[in-house]
């Protein structure tokens, strides 16, 4: 759907394992951390895991404390949601 509201941005959000994918329109002021919280809840992703978001269009990792506009997320960008790995092998 074309997005005619300049205060909102339409993006494609997908998980790195491609099991979840959605086109969503959200406020440009939305914090990346809120996007992560909403999508992990909505998609029933593992709790107790830290997530990160990468903009595949720009190759930039988004700061969780930034808004989408601060990180220059544009209409049509594909954002990838994936766990932030902190494991070696033995302990979390």
């Amino acid at each position: 759907m074309p997005n005619n509201d300049p205060s909102r941005v339409t993006i494609i959000l997908q998980t790195a394992d491609r099991t979840r994918k959605a086109e969503i329109t959200v406020p440009r002021t939305m914090q990346v951390s809120s996007l992560i919280s909403a999508s992990t809840r909505r998609w029933f992703l593992s709790a107790g895991v830290d997530y990160q978001v990468t903009n595949l269009a720009t190759g930039m990792c988004l700061n969780t404390s930034d808004s989408l506009s601060t990180d220059k997320v544009a209409d049509g960008d594909v954002l990838m949601l994936q766990p932030f790995p902190t494991h070696g092998a033995n302990r979390g």
């Binding site: 790195a16 394992d17 951390s33 830290d50 990160q52 990792c61 700061n63 969780t64 404390s65 994936q82 766990p83 932030f84 790995p85 902190t86 494991h87 070696g88 092998a89």
Partner: peptide, 28 residues
């Protein structure tokens, strides 16, 4: 760093640029 099906390798400069702590979220 690894997860079950995921591998990440990051290069952090010693004196400039982003560091590991720069990527820490409030949840982390």
């Amino acid at each position: 760093a690894i997860e079950i099906n995921q591998v990440e390798v990051t290069h952090f400069g010693g004196q400039s640029g982003p560091c590991f702590e720069c990527g820490m979220s409030a949840a982390m």
